[in-house]
Design a protein around this nucleic acid. Structure first.
Length: 839
DNA sequence: ATAGATGGCTAT
DNA sequence: TAGCCATCTATA
């Protein structure tokens, strides 16, 4: 009896909620779970991940695995387990999850490439064919089919083909044109061997020849001796290219030494150092921990020795020295226990300042995953972590998925930060996943913040997390005095000088004092551009984005109106586009305008502006902060990106130009975000020996987000906010699942949401018990931002108890995704579990 | 996501 | 009746 052919289940990065089964060619041993394989799929090839043995029964036309791409799984068991958890909880196909968790060069697919031949275009070619030929011609060296699909179809009338991708099958056309000899079609295979940059390195063998041997070896070869001594002076090895180019040795000398067996030339993986040429690492400060820091350290170290346990909240006010506590834990876990650790920081906080601190303390044990890294650099770091050559990873969100063996600790700094939430599928929250991974691998989890998210706070209250508190500033720093300026009492145009509703007399005076004393100041305005909308004084028309239901922001420097959601831009108008009135008013103050007003008010001040528009380059962010650190800047002005983690002792003033920005967002977290932002930015003042001062300009001085920021009262804020979210109930009293439908066609988006909500409402009554009691269905309704990227969006959401029903809801969500009949056409369904915002 | 099949519609 | 389009189905 013949053996049944061994098969494997493979997860492919496609929006398909089940794995595919492939047969292993004869003699190929079954790869371990998590190993990447190359498989045929439809007309191309794709890279997927082996999940385990498969069963070929009932599959007609099963196909063979084409190649096993690695011996060590790129998704080791711990990462695969985490990926499965995410796939289940966030209702996302496992292959898509794996693709997100792993460095992107590891997943690829074959590409169809079209090349235009020399043959001239024959007469009478159909319009569509001609259009395709032109599109291919426009791309030199061949056009990928993927790229071609994105181009707009030819204009066919006033309404049709309005910038949408070509519909229908393109293949008959390609076949026709290929047969006519006008196009060549080639299929490029997926890149399965990630490009590692390699370099030739020359290295002195061990042991090197002793002095006696050298006499005989080098009697007639003085250059060889010189080379050996040169290499020894450099520590025993040198990149070959540099040796030949920079050091003036000839290839013959190198070959001579190699022939004598004194050196060897080898290919070595090139370990690119992303922080090459960056500021030198800070050495660890010799400070004695405060009693509170010591207590926190003891608790964490104790927990690390007993396998993790309850997650910790390290609740320390700004400047209280949370970093020192993290360091003590890392030292214990990495250096004493020989394990590994993850440190997560918000996207923006990964400043060279922060990085050099970690590198100074832990040297080249640290891998840094910075957004400025290329994909190749990221992969290099990832490989070193997997090999155990580096044992600490510091990075944003995705660093949580680093393949560290024997994980001992996970630190999530500034755990309340919104950038931990991934906005596309899988819509995970790295803070929540840190808790999951810690539990799966027995690692200590520490969530650090001065202003914890209410979810984390509630987990402390309910005994799920253990709170460690740092109630005082470390060292000489004192919490700054906070003063409020009521913008309602300041009307513009009353006297000469700056518009007092932008820079109040109090703020002007405070800035002048800093300039006189040679101290520095920070000015926050959480809105970029020059003005957030442009309105015609004649007819009231406001410039709107054609793809999104938002107004366009005016960027004066570049003379553009821009959409901050879809990046649409158009030239700034000089007169109203509707009525032609030239009297336009620029409303809604932004950073660009504040910069202008500030520089007019304080002509002698050196000003730097930091927002998305001034930090485009790879190191622009670092460059601006470097200037502030070297005191080449008197006033740093910017959006929320200046509020996080900066530590400059000479900054003694923080001015918030308008604290109300964001307070009126139609989202249940608006107050929380405002409070956190104000508390964080206030924490930038007075971190050194000099006393700090904070001025908050606001039209809502009585709002609790502002009142509590004034008095540095986190617990007061939490109590009030928790009460406000009781009715109607919002997180953390309930869990939410936001379900968003979208389509270019408004009717279909609405219909999809109606059907979706109806599915849940009808399933609630069913005897199947699919939807557990206590689940409320709210909506549907159009989203707050109703149109985005040219699609109309509707949503409804589920509200469920915090305890109990989570697993049942997961099951119901899977049934929902499988069972819901969406309207035909381009209609998408997105499930956002534990959303950060409901916009 | 996307190739391929199906069926209705229309300009030719 | 070829071509176009929307819709449906399977992908191993």
């Amino acid at each position: 009896m013949p053996h049944p052919a061994p098969c494997v289940e493979v997860a492919l990065p496609l929006p398909i909620h089940h794995p595919f089964t492939y047969r292993l060619p004869e003699g190929v041993p079954t790869p371990a779970p998590g190993v990447r394989v190359l498989v045929p799929f439809q007309r191309g090839e794709r890279v997927g991940w082996v999940l385990g043995p498969g069963n070929p029964d009932g599959i007609k036309g099963i196909r063979d695995v084409l190649d096993v791409l690695e011996t060590e799984p790129s998704a080791p068991p711990a990462i695969l387990a985490l990926a499965r958890w995410i796939a289940d909880y966030h209702v996302t196909p496992l292959g898509l999850v794996l693709r997100t968790l792993l460095p992107s060069p590891l997943s690829d697919e074959s590409r169809d490439v079209l090349i235009r031949t020399e043959r001239p275009v024959p007469p009478g070619l159909p319009e569509g064919d001609l259009h395709l030929l032109r599109a291919v011609e426009a791309r030199k060296g061949g056009a990928t089919l993927r790229g071609l699909r994105r181009i707009p179809s030819p204009p066919m009338g006033p309404e049709r083909g309005s910038g949408r991708p070509t519909a229908g099958s393109i293949w008959p056309r390609i076949r026709r044109l290929t047969a006519a000899g006008l196009l060549l079609h080639r299929v490029d295979p997926p890149r399965t061997e990630p490009t590692t940059r390699r370099q030739r390195v020359i290295r002195v063998v061990d042991p090197a020849p002793d002095l006696g041997q050298r006499e005989t070896l080098f009697r007639r070869a003085p250059r060889q001796r010189a080379l050996l001594e040169w290499l020894e002076a450099l520590g025993g090895q040198r990149e070959l290219a540099l040796l030949l180019r920079e050091d003036g040795f000839s290839r013959a000398v190198v070959s001579g030494l190699e022939a004598n067996g004194v050196v060897e030339v080898m290919d070595e993986e090139w370990l690119r150092d992303p922080f090459e040429g960056r500021p030198a690492p800070e050495s660890p400060p010799q400070v004695t921990p405060t009693p509170a820091q010591q207590a926190a350290m003891d608790a964490l170290i104790q927990a690390s020795r007993t396998g993790g346990g309850t997650p910790f909240l390290l609740h320390g006010i700004t400047g209280s020295g949370k970093t020192l506590v993290y360091m003590a834990l890392l030292r214990e876990v990495v250096e004493v226990q020989g394990r590994t650790a993850v440190v997560l920081v918000p996207e923006i906080a990964l400043t060279p300042q922060a990085v050099s601190r970690f590198r100074g303390w832990f040297g080249d044990q640290v891998a840094v995953l910075h957004s400025a890294l290329s994909e190749g650099e990221r992969l290099d770091e990832w490989r070193q972590l997997r090999r155990g050559d580096k044992r600490i990873v510091v990075g944003a969100r995705s660093a949580l998925f680093a393949p560290l063996p024997n994980l001992g600790a996970i630190v999530v700094d500034e755990e309340h930060d919104g950038s931990y939430k991934q906005s596309e599928a899988p819509r995970y929250h790295a803070r929540d996943l840190a808790v999951v991974r810690g539990q799966l691998e027995g690692a200590v989890v520490v969530l650090g913040s001065a202003t914890p998210s209410l979810e984390t706070w509630q987990n402390v209250v309910r005994g799920k997390f253990q709170r460690l508190s740092l109630p005082h500033r470390a060292g000489a720093g004192r919490l700054p005095k906070v003063e409020v300026v009521d913008l309602r009492t300041l009307r513009s145009g009353s006297r000469n000088g700056p518009d007092p509703s932008v820079l109040s007399p109090q703020l002007v005076e405070a800035v002048e004092a800093r300039l006189a004393r040679g101290e520095q100041g920070i000015l926050l305005l959480n809105r970029r551009g020059y003005s957030s909308f442009v309105q015609c004084r004649g007819c009231g028309e406001v410039g709107q984005c054609p793809n999104c239901s938002v107004s366009l922001t005016f960027h004066r420097q570049r003379g553009l109106l821009r959409c901050h959601h879809c990046r649409h831009e158009e030239p700034a108008p000089t007169r109203c586009v509707r009525c032609g009135d030239p009297d336009l008013s620029f409303r809604g103050l932004g950073t660009e305008q504040v910069e202008r007003i500030v520089s007019e008010t304080f002509p002698s001040a050196r000003i730097a502006r930091m927002d998305v528009d001034t930090t485009g380059g790879k190191w622009a962010h670092a460059e601006i902060l470097g200037r502030v650190e070297r005191r080449e800047v008197d006033l740093l002005l910017g959006t929320q990106m200046i509020a996080k983690g900066l530590d400059f002792p000479n900054v003694t003033l923080v001015g918030v130009v308008n604290a109300d920005v964001g307070l009126h967002m139609p989202d249940f977290r608006a107050s929380e975000r405002t409070f956190q932002l104000l508390a964080q930015v206030a924490g930038r003042a007075g971190r050194g020996a000099l006393a700090g001062e904070v001025i908050l300009q606001t039209s809502l001085p009585d709002h609790h987000a502002i009142q509590c920021a004034l008095t540095h009262d986190y617990e007061g804020f939490a109590a009030r906010e928790l009460a406000d979210r009781r009715s109607p109930p919002y997180p953390p009293h309930r869990r939410l699942v936001n379900i968003v439908t979208s389509s270019p066609d408004p009717d279909r988006a609405a219909a999809a949401a109606e059907r979706g909500a109806a599915w849940w409402r009808s399933s609630q009554g069913l005897a199947s018990g699919l939807v557990p009691a206590g689940v409320e269905v709210v909506g549907p309704a159009p989203c707050a931002i109703e149109r985005l990227h040219g699609r109309t969006r509707w949503h409804f959401f589920l509200r469920l108890p915090v305890e109990g029903s989570v697993r049942h809801v997961t099951r119901a969500l899977h049934a929902f995704v499988e069972g819901l009949e969406l309207p035909t056409g381009d209609v998408r369904l997105a499930i956002d579990r534990d959303p950060v915002a409901l916009l």
